[in-house]
Every structure is written in structure tokens, then in C-alpha cells.
């Protein structure tokens, strides 16, 4: 019923709040071990970690300066091309408090909900790439559907040559499948696939997967291509919820069309 009609959707949003306390309680042991990990550490290891972090921060600050220069150059070039400036996406950091108990459903629950401005359809990232999208937002929590779930597909493009395609989950945490890849398409192992922003749901330019295997079977009309998600779907405890501004993307696309007509 809930799958075929939308009548129960508002009801569903309210009763899902009922599930929140169970996930909170089930997460307590994890939080206790986290607390011990944070608080019971030797002085020596703290000093070592501190030194490592200082070094890392220095390196990253240097890289950031270069990035700043590149970003401003990029926006200047975009201004030259008559399109609006790409704004930085706003993000919200959330913590994972539960995973779907059903192994066939790749869904997790995070501890940010409607009260933090989370909305249905919001993209979710970790430090390595795109993880999925919010499918249900209750008041305190949100359910995130992973890109590997077999009901999920996302428009991507190959970073190397900007060819657009669609990648879908097959219910395997380490594999995604590219659908309808013509045998003539330029795609090789190791290609990085980034979100293309088409469809307006996901922000453009985030890494999604790297191509694992490309197999051209002469007997079939499409090549079978598999990719591995770059996000660490079963390891990340902290995720980023992106607030993207879809108008910007459509602006660029429109002005690109105008530019090509001239």
C-alpha cells in the first residue's frame, strides 16, 4: 500500500518518529565505546596525534590557498563565459545512529531531522564521495537511502570526457552498475564518475564511483560496466548533508545553451 500509493505518506512521516527512540537506545553501546575511545587515551598518543594533525593542517592550508586561487580563477572564467558564479554548497554534519536491519535495504538513519532543516531529496556525502539521499525526514532524524540500494539510480558523467550516463545500485554495498552503456562509449577501467547534477536532485561534481570492470559482449547490445562507490558506505560514521541551490545549475545550463547559439 505504502509502496503503490501516496495516501499513507503523511501518516508514515509521523509514525516513523516512533522508531527514533529504538535506534537511540540501540546506539548507546556504540556511544559508550566512543566515549571511552575519546577520553581514555595515553598522553603520548595524544601528543603524537596532535603533531600529526598540525602537520596535516599545514599541508592542507597550503593546498587550500592554491584551491582559493583556482576557485577565483574559475569564477572569473565563468564570468567571462557569461554564466553565474558557482556558489559553495552549504553542508550540515550528521552522525549515523542506525542502519536498516533488513540486509536487502541499504538505508541508514542519521541524527538530524526536519528541525535542522533536512528535507526529502537532500544529497548525503562523506569525505570520499556521494553516499545517497534523504528519503524520509522526521522531526529528529532522517532516513538516508544509499546509492547501492537496488531501487536507486543517479545521473553521472565520466570525469575524463564528460560523457553522461546513469548508474544504479544492485543491492551490493561494493558494486554499482552502469545501465545502457553503448559498446562504442569511451569508458575504461579506473574512470572516475562524478554526479552530473542533471535531474536537479544531486549537486554536480561530487565523485560517485570508479569504474571496476568494462566488458563488451558482442552478443549483447549494451556493454556490462560495473563500478565501485568511492564513499565508504559501511565505515563512515559522520556524513554531510548538502544544501544545494538548484537554480545555480539551471542558470549555467541555460547560459551554456545561449552561448552555443551565438
Amino acid at each position: 500500500m505504502a509502496r503503490y500509493t501516496g495516501y499513507l505518506a503523511p501518516l508514515r512521516n509521523h509514525i516513523d518518529t516512533f522508531s527514533t527512540p529504538f535506534y537511540w537506545v540501540a546506539n548507546i553501546p556504540q556511544q559508550v565505546t566512543d566515549w571511552f575511545d575519546r577520553n581514555i587515551v595515553s598522553r603520548q598518543s595524544l601528543i603524537e596525534e596532535n603533531q600529526r594533525l598540525v602537520k596535516e593542517s599545514l599541508i592542507q592550508r597550503a593546498e587550500l590557498q592554491r584551491m582559493d586561487a583556482l576557485a577565483s580563477e574559475n569564477s572569473r572564467l565563468r564570468a567571462l563565459m557569461n554564466s553565474s558564479e558557482l556558489l559553495k554548497d552549504k553542508v550540515l554534519i550528521a552522525e549515523l545512529i542506525g542502519i536498516s536491519p533488513d540486509p536487502k535495504v541499504h538505508k541508514v538513519i542519521v541524527n538530524k531531522g526536519r528541525k535542522d532543516g533536512v528535507y526529502v531529496g537532500q544529497a548525503v556525502l562523506d569525505a570520499f564521495g556521494l553516499m545517497g539521499q534523504v528519503v524520509v525526514a522526521t522531526y529528529h532524524t532522517a532516513e538516508v537511502l544509499f546509492i547501492t540500494d537496488d531501487s536507486h539510480a543517479i545521473p553521472v558523467q565520466i570525469n575524463r570526457n564528460n560523457v553522461r550516463t546513469v548508474i544504479e545500485g544492485i543491492g551490493d554495498l561494493y558494486q554499482l552498475r552502469l545501465r545502457y552503456v553503448p559498446s562504442t562509449m569511451d569508458i575504461v577501467e579506473g574512470d572516475v564518475l562524478v554526479s552530473s547534477g542533471l535531474g536537479g536532485r544531486f549537486p554536480a561534481g561530487y565523485p560517485v564511483a570508479t569504474v571496476d570492470s568494462v566488458n563488451h559482449d558482442p552478443g549483447k547490445s549494451f556493454a556490462s560496466v560495473y563500478a565501485r562507490p568511492t564513499a565508504q558506505l559501511n565505515r563512515s560514521r559522520h556524513v554531510l548533508l548538502v544544501f544545494s541551490d538548484n537554480d545555480i545549475n539551471t542558470d549555467i545550463v541555460e547560459s551554456d545553451i545561449v552561448g552555443s547559439e551565438q
Binding site: F22, Q30, I99, P101, P103, L173, N234
Partner: peptide, 17 residues
């Protein structure tokens, strides 16, 4: 029982719950 059904397990172990 509801609590036991959502105790987090690694994805690979979930089918043995």
C-alpha cells in the same frame, strides 16, 4: 524484541540475525 531487531550489526552479518 523491537530493540533487539535494530541493534546495529555489520551489513554482512545482518542476514544471520
Amino acid at each position: 524484541v523491537l530493540l533487539l531487531s535494530v541493534i546495529p550489526l555489520p551489513f554482512v552479518w545482518q542476514q544471520w540475525r
